[in-house]
């Protein structure tokens, strides 16, 4: 039952960049919908403006508790953004939150007959492969990366969602797969990698990369929350740039290492920080995984920032930070 201008919106993962910024953006409008925050922690920054409900998605009975809340509050749209931005070494918890948490949210939506479900996803799920076409469409299979546990968990979550959708025709589902995000305030492991003054990269590889600006990302989620956009969409900035050009634009130096050496040198730091061997991250700087954005642009409007502009916005904000 697609409806417009929902009265009540539930957002999971208010602690993440995406959840918080989406709530703030929705609240900017005078006639904003009632916002219910679902999560384990009270979002103190938005205290008094949203209705907080304490739910832990990793608990075994989270689905029935969620269904109760959704029915109680009369929620019409659920936005699921409770995903980790960066991989962590806590592999079990990661699986519980990303895959099982999504399962709980889906089942609760079905039980409470929620009209619309918006799920955050990533174009990283397509996986970096030497045999990828230059532009991956939304219909391309999600192959992930075998050594990136965070990506694999989300691939599984999307697989569960794809099975769930035809069984629940009453709920329309919008999946937004976004590429790496750049902007003045966004922060994750990719941003921290690019923040280094000397950036390690693979000798002999110079893949094309694409970014989306944080404002364009939040805009797409806002559109998907407020109006009916069923389907899967890639949310990416326009244009692509090779990694070496990005570094030259930022005035950073590249440390070019042969892949066997880099994968051995970076093994311990990577394993302890992300729980994955280096290939889980550096393969994304080795092979192509650029996604085609046309379908998303037609649905949510052209992005304001191109890949280059998103990158420049990130670089200039960090440059300013040095002078504070």
């Amino acid at each position: 039952m697609p409806m417009n201008e929902p009265g009540t919106v539930a957002i999971t993962g208010l602690g993440t960049f995406l959840g918080q910024r989406l709530a703030e953006r929705l609240l900017e409008d005078r006639a904003h919908p009632r916002i219910v925050a679902l999560g384990p922690r009270r979002p103190l920054r938005l205290e008094g403006r949203i209705h907080f409900q304490d739910v832990d998605f990793t608990e075994p009975t989270a689905d029935s508790r969620l269904a109760e809340i959704l029915a109680d509050q009369g929620v019409e749209v659920v936005v699921h953004t409770a995903f980790r931005h960066s991989p962590t070494p806590d592999l079990d918890f990661d699986h519980e939150l990303e895959t099982i948490g999504t399962l709980h949210v889906m089942n609760a939506c079905a039980a409470a007959k929620v009209g619309r479900l918006v799920v955050a996803s990533s174009t990283m799920l397509y996986g970096p492969r030497p045999d990828n076409p230059n532009f991956l469409s939304e219909d391309h299979p999600l192959r992930g990366h075998p050594e990136a546990h965070n990506v694999q968990n989300r691939v599984e979550a999307e697989r569960l969602l794809a099975e769930w959708i035809p069984r629940h025709p009453d709920t329309e589902v919008c999946v937004l797969r976004h590429c790496w995000v750049m902007g003045p305030t966004y922060d994750d492991h990719v941003v921290r990698y690019f923040e280094r003054p000397v950036v390690p990269m693979l000798l002999g590889y110079d893949p094309l990369l694409q970014f989306v600006h944080e404002e364009d990302l939040v805009h797409a989620f806002e559109q998907a929350t407020l109006a009916s956009h069923p389907g899967v969409f890639n949310i990416v900035g326009s244009g692509v740039l090779p990694l070496s050009t990005l570094l030259a634009l930022a005035g950073k130096r590249a440390l070019q290492l042969p892949s066997p050496l880099l994968y051995r040198l970076a093994y311990y730091p990577n394993q302890s920080q992300t729980g994955d061997p280096p290939a889980g991250f550096y393969d994304y700087l080795r092979y192509l995984w650029v996604a085609a954005g046309e379908r998303g642009w037609a649905e949510f409007g052209e992005p304001v920032y191109s890949t280059q502009e998103a990158w420049i916005s990130f670089v200039s904000s960090r440059r300013m930070r040095r002078y504070r």
Binding site: F135, G239, V240, L241, P242, T245, A248, L249, Q308
Partner: peptide, 12 residues
Amino acid sequence: MVERSGVVDEFG
């Protein structure tokens, strides 16, 4: 950026 441009076409 002496030896390259800041913009490439969509296939690089």
